[in-house]
Simulated scan of single mutants.
Amino acid sequence: MAKEMKEQFLEDAQGQLVPIAAVKPIDLKRHEAVTSIMADTFKERDRLVEFKKSIWLRVQDFLAESAKDSGARKFGGPKGNVTLTSFDGRFKVMVAVNDTVQFNEKLQVAKQLIDKCIAT
């Protein structure tokens, strides 16, 4: 029953359920087009994530083999950046590791505590 009810409504940008009968046909078509495009976009994103993981593993395998052959411990710059070039020089594979800062839940808790102090 909940599914049937949900099919009779669309959620708007404010999170309110709007009866489908009250939505203009052009707005329904736009919604369908956008959600369809986004579904394809998410599939493509997931495919690219897997492709990047595959490349990363292949580069790491090559570096491990090369290190074993040469006796080196580590390849790449200070951040682990590596460039591999084909023998003929036509192709380059560049692995660049970004410096990213990730905030975990502790930052959110701290923010809430600070906001609480400011509010009182």
Score class of each variant (00 low, 15 high):
36 S>N: 14
93 V>T: 04
35 T>E: 11
86 S>F: 05
44 E>R: 11
78 P>C: 02
17 L>C: 07
119 A>W: 04
43 K>A: 04
113 L>C: 01
3 K>A: 15
23 V>C: 01
120 T>H: 10
47 R>N: 14
38 M>P: 00
89 G>Q: 00
24 K>F: 04
88 D>C: 02
88 D>H: 01
77 G>I: 09
105 E>T: 13
45 R>Y: 05
5 M>A: 15
45 R>K: 11
119 A>K: 13
106 K>R: 15
22 A>P: 01
90 R>G: 15
19 P>C: 06
83 T>G: 06
4 E>D: 12
102 Q>W: 00
111 K>Y: 06
2 A>Q: 12
64 A>T: 15
64 A>L: 10
82 V>F: 08
14 Q>K: 14
103 F>H: 06
41 T>S: 05
104 N>H: 09
19 P>L: 02
111 K>G: 00
101 V>N: 03
10 L>R: 12
23 V>R: 10
108 Q>K: 15
34 V>P: 02
12 D>S: 02
65 E>C: 07
40 D>L: 09
54 S>G: 13
6 K>Q: 12
80 G>E: 06
53 K>N: 15
47 R>H: 08
50 E>Q: 13
67 A>R: 10
14 Q>W: 04
63 L>T: 00
31 H>A: 10
18 V>F: 01
109 V>W: 01
111 K>C: 07
42 F>R: 15
5 M>I: 14
92 K>Y: 04
119 A>F: 09
40 D>Y: 11
49 V>F: 04
102 Q>I: 11
101 V>E: 08
84 L>W: 12
15 G>E: 05
99 D>Q: 08
13 A>M: 13
40 D>M: 14
49 V>Q: 11
74 K>Q: 09
13 A>H: 10
108 Q>P: 00
47 R>M: 02
113 L>T: 12
42 F>P: 01
31 H>T: 11
24 K>M: 09
80 G>R: 00
2 A>S: 10
4 E>K: 15
102 Q>M: 10
13 A>D: 15
117 C>A: 14
11 E>F: 07
77 G>M: 07
98 N>C: 03
23 V>S: 03
114 I>R: 01
45 R>H: 06
29 K>S: 03
66 S>G: 13
